[in-house]
Write a protein that binds this DNA or RNA. Structure first.
Length: 185
DNA sequence: AACATTTGACCGTA
DNA sequence: TACGGTCAAATGTT
C-alpha cells in the first residue's frame, strides 16, 4: 500500500532546500497533503508535516514542515517556519520554487488583489542581472539571505529538469492562490 | 464515493 | 527511553 515509491522517497537523506519564515504559510505554489502533526518538545505550537500532493501518483518525494514560531512580543503577525525537503519531480503545476517565477512562460498580469487573500501583493519583482536568470523574477520580499541560493536552485532545476521547458509552462487558469507571487507578503 | 485531515499508535534513532 | 517523523484508521469534506 505504498503511497510513494520508497526508492524515490528518503526524507532523511533528502536535501534540505530551504528554511524560511512566512507570514501566511497557506500557499507556496505547490499542493500538499498533510500526513502528520506533532508537538515538539516544549514548543508552544505543533509542527505539521506535508508531502507533495502528487506523491501518490508520481512518487514525488518533496515534503515540507510548517511550524508556527514561538515569537515573543508583538502578537499581531504570526510567523511560521517552513522547511522544504527534496526536489519536486512531479509535473504538476510547474512551479518549482515558491520564490522564483519563470517570466518566459508566465505573465504576471492575472494576479488580482481582490482574489488574493494574502496580506500584501507584489507586482513588481525586480530584474536579475545574471543573464542565466534573465527569464526569472524574484518576489521582492524574499529574504536577503535566500536570494542567491534560491536563484541557483531555480537555475539548476531548469537545467536538470528531465521534462525540459514544458515543466515550466504556466497555465492561464492558474489561480492567484497558486501563484508564487501572491504567497509571501 | 473519493478525497483530505485529524490524531494516537508505531517505530527508528540518538 | 525520550523525541520526532510517519502510518493509518477514523473522521470530516466535497
Amino acid at each position: 500500500r505504498n503511497l510513494i515509491d520508497p526508492l524515490d522517497y528518503d526524507r532523511k537523506n533528502a536535501e534540505h532546500t530551504g528554511s524560511t519564515v512566512a507570514q501566511a504559510p497557506h500557499n507556496d505554489g505547490h499542493q500538499w497533503r498533510k500526513y502528520g502533526q506533532k508537538w515538539i518538545s516544549r514548543a508552544k505550537h505543533s509542527r505539521s508535516y506535508y508531502r507533495c500532493a502528487n506523491s501518490k501518483v508520481q512518487g514525488c518525494p518533496a515534503t515540507k514542515t510548517v511550524q508556527q514560531m514561538d515569537s515573543s512580543g508583538n502578537g499581531t503577525s504570526k510567523l511560521f517556519n517552513v522547511d522544504y525537503y527534496g526536489q519536486h519531480t512531479c509535473k504538476g503545476d510547474g512551479i518549482a520554487n515558491p520564490y522564483v517565477v519563470d517570466t518566459a512562460h508566465h505573465s504576471m498580469e492575472p494576479i488580482n488583489q481582490n482574489e488574493c487573500n494574502s496580506p500584501t501583493l507584489e507586482h513588481e519583482a525586480h530584474e536579475v542581472q545574471d543573464e542565466r536568470f534573465e527569464n526569472l523574477c524574484m518576489v521582492q520580499n524574499m529574504p536577503e539571505y535566500l536570494i542567491d541560493f534560491e536563484l541557483e536552485r531555480a537555475f539548476e532545476f531548469i537545467m536538470n529538469s528531465p521534462l525540459g521547458s514544458e515543466h515550466w509552462t504556466f497555465d492561464d487558469s492558474i489561480r492567484c492562490e497558486h501563484s508564487p507571487i501572491c504567497i509571501w507578503g
